[in-house]
Simulated assay, not measured.
Amino acid sequence: MNESYKDLKAYLLNEIAEDAQDMLNAIGDKDVDEIDDEEVLCFCHSIATTMTTLETVAMVGTLVPWFLESNGCEDK
């Protein structure tokens, strides 16, 4: 696996984990009325965006080697 791919994947997973932890901290043991909806939604949006990016990176990481190999572009 390419080091750049692994680094990008690790970065994205770390971002998801950090945002998830921040979201949990924003909710905490608060009553529903005390929770800042906009703050929680911001973390949710960030998680969703990062997850979409991770999914795209994973798909490209899977498809590009297959595409290059199928077109005779593999290292010989």
Score class of each variant (00 low, 15 high):
M1F: 07
M1E: 09
N2S: 14
N2Y: 03
N2G: 03
E3H: 02
E3L: 11
E3I: 06
E3P: 07
S4T: 14
S4H: 05
K6M: 12
K6Q: 14
D7R: 13
D7C: 05
L8F: 06
K9E: 10
A10D: 07
Y11P: 00
Y11Q: 13
L12M: 09
L12W: 11
L13D: 07
L13F: 00
L13H: 01
N14G: 13
N14A: 13
N14E: 13
I16G: 00
E18G: 00
D19F: 04
A20C: 05
A20E: 14
A20F: 04
Q21W: 00
D22I: 00
D22C: 01
M23N: 03
L24T: 13
L24W: 11
A26S: 06
A26H: 01
I27K: 07
I27D: 02
I27Y: 03
I27E: 02
D29V: 04
D29C: 02
D29Q: 11
D29Y: 05
D29L: 06
K30P: 07
D31P: 00
D31T: 09
V32E: 12
D33W: 05
D33K: 12
D33E: 11
E34T: 03
E34Y: 05
I35L: 03
D36H: 02
D36Y: 00
D36I: 00
E38N: 12
E39F: 03
V40M: 06
C42M: 15
F43A: 01
F43N: 02
C44A: 13
H45N: 10
H45S: 12
S46E: 05
I47W: 01
I47F: 01
T49Q: 09
T49V: 10
T49H: 08
T49F: 03
T50D: 08
M51W: 02
T52F: 09
T53H: 07
T53I: 12
T53R: 09
L54R: 02
L54Y: 06
E55W: 03
V57D: 04
V60K: 10
G61H: 08
T62Y: 07
T62I: 04
V64A: 14
V64G: 01
P65A: 03
W66V: 08
W66G: 01
W66R: 07
W66M: 12
L68F: 06
L68E: 12
E69H: 11
E69C: 04
S70D: 13
S70V: 05
S70W: 05
N71V: 15
G72M: 08
C73P: 00
C73M: 15
E74Y: 09
E74D: 15
E74Q: 15
E74H: 10
D75K: 15
D75T: 15
K76E: 14
K76Y: 14
